[in-house]
Amino acid sequence: MLVMGEVHTGLLQSSGEIPESACRDVLHLMSGETVRLSRRPMIYAVSPDLLTGVDCRLPSASRSRIRGVGTVVSHSSITGGRVVQGSSYARVERAETDRRLAWSHYLARPGVIEVLGKAKSSDLGDGFIGDPQPNGLDLGSISARFMDVVQSSPLLDRRAPFKVARTKVRWVAQPGDPAIRFTLNADQTRTIRIAHSGDFTPAVVDLCEDLALHDWLLTTLLLIVERARIGGRAGPEVVAKLAPAVDHLLHLWMPAARVDEALVPYWHGLEDRMRFTAQWERLVRRIRDQLTLNDAAMLRSARHP
């Protein structure tokens, strides 16, 4: 019927970026399962997929009581040794009977939540993207815990270079003519709706995680620039405030690097509308200009003390 997911993104709680070996150790969430890791175009490490059982009300725009039983798939990942994500999703499918079956039935279908009774795919999707009801399916809390498990690893020193809130991206994917809509809400939440031709594949999850990563990078860079109060305080102070961005963020921007080729057009489509990269580049230029100005000022004062 449809797939629902939620990705949380935040700054890894360590003073610097962590090396490959540490990524492996931190993400080793299940014995006997290796952490998958790719090195190009930057280090990306992901924990094995883990399941969480649920039996609860599913979201519904019409506030209908819809019960779903099954499992949610989740993993944690670290990009560039610096950014953490906790990601969860579940495929929602119609059950063959209206009563709950033995748990082994659901475990034989990992990552599927079966709907007991009647439900419309659009009603579920709208409900999930819209205002979530209390006590309904809470993918956000599951993803948050998959971030916590990384952030609280004893291998991290917890001395992050700056403080920043996590962002939350809720997404829904349904079959249809290819389309994507990204919505920025007032708080730290964003929503994505994707229509995909053909069957759902985990590549859609990768796409949403990549979008969430870049949205977090942009959100965080905007925050750092805002906190620096360019023009509102002395140059060296501004530069000190901007420094963490240069040290920890600027090199991480690499849109669609991990996205399946077939889904790259979704990224391009969003770029055309939202101009993610253009905004990022403008901010980066602004930061670099401040650094240059400050260097020039320092040079001048050194020559004419």
Partner: peptide, 13 residues
């Protein structure tokens, strides 16, 4: 409580 302190410490000075 541990989870709360840990999450808030990520976000607040």
């Amino acid at each position: 409580c541990v989870q709360l302190f840990s999450r808030l410490n990520e976000e607040f000075d």
